[in-house]
């Protein structure tokens, strides 16, 4: 499938989620490593992805990137600027980059992300990379979408306490201490190691990088690949994918229910739910996949 077709399908998945089933049904099931990058605004997620792409490309792998930025809560419009940092790869046929607005989704991604990732896996990319919004709050959705989650930190940046509180620290498989070319990096690194030790987590997966000069990138990519291979060889990947399926199903259920809820008009909340569920069951039975 060429980039144009893929791009059009993503638009469809985003705008008309009800048609996702029909679209994805026609494609072969296929999986590839899906890697998530999360962390506070400005820590260097996009720049890091740019470097990771370069590294994967030099190993001959094709890469798809989905970069999510927040939608304005007022206008629902969005300014999507992550792509700027990936300029080098614009003309590379082996790289596909798509910017996406969060469109009100809470977990730091966009509701269609499950469908979009499934599409990108199906059409044959070797790697799918995801960048989350980067507001530093409760961005845990990426945990369910990606197989390997990298949490990007950088010195004096973002509020580490905030991340701790929001539970983002817990969801990461790899901790990237970026901007290692700047001062203050060592202290952040030490604190992180300390934290992980007492949290009983694997302090091995801390990598220092500089997305600016490329140091540490090779190591980061190696770690990511090794982790994924480990997951694939053990039961872990199956488990992860099961989780993903469950969350995908949940998202779908929520969206579907919401749709029917908004169509019922009842004074009594209990009755409202009953009515909505009733409509839903009828429609789903006849409507094959709920397409409207």
């Amino acid at each position: 499938m060429d980039h144009k077709e893929i791009a059009k399908l993503i638009t469809l998945l985003e705008n008309e989620p009800d048609r996702a089933r029909d679209i994805l049904k026609k494609l072969p099931k296929r999986i590839c490593p899906v890697i998530g990058f999360t962390g506070s605004p400005g820590v260097g997620k996009s720049t890091l992805i740019d470097q990771v792409i370069a590294r994967l490309r030099s190993a001959g792998k094709t890469v798809a990137v989905v970069a999510v930025d927040p939608s304005s809560p007022f206008s629902q419009g969005a300014f999507l600027g992550d792509r700027v940092r990936m300029k080098k790869h614009f003309l590379d046929e082996g790289v596909f980059i798509r910017s996406m607005a969060s469109r009100g989704a809470l977990g730091g991604l966009n509701e269609s992300i499950y469908d979009v990732v499934e599409l990108l896996e199906a059409v044959g990319f070797d790697y799918v990379l995801i960048e989350t919004v980067g507001v530093g709050q409760a961005e845990v959705e990426v945990r369910y979408v990606a197989d390997v989650v990298a949490l990007v930190l950088s010195p004096g940046f973002g509020d580490e306490m905030q991340l701790l509180k929001a539970g983002v620290m817990e969801i990461a498989d790899i901790y990237v201490v970026n901007k290692s070319d700047l001062e203050g990096n060592d202290s952040l690194y030490d604190q992180l190691i300390g934290f992980l030790t007492f949290a009983g987590r694997d302090a091995l997966n801390v990598v220092k990088t500089s997305a600016l000069n490329g140091s540490g990138i090779e190591e980061l990519v190696d770690r990511i690949i090794t982790l994924w291979k480990n997951f694939a060889e053990t039961e872990k990947l199956k488990q992860l994918r099961k989780e993903r399926l469950r969350h995908h199903t949940e998202t779908l259920a929520r969206r579907t229910l919401q749709k029917y809820l908004s169509a019922v008009d009842s004074e009594d909340p209990y009755e409202g739910v009953e009515l909505a569920l009733k409509f839903m069951c009828e429609r789903l039975k006849y409507g094959q996949g709920g397409g409207t």
Binding site: T47, F79, G81, V84, R85, K87, N213
Partner: peptide
């Protein structure tokens, strides 16, 4: 020396 990429946001 390498090349610079701008930092854009609004």
């Amino acid at each position: 020396y390498g090349e610079y990429t701008e930092s854009t946001s609004i």
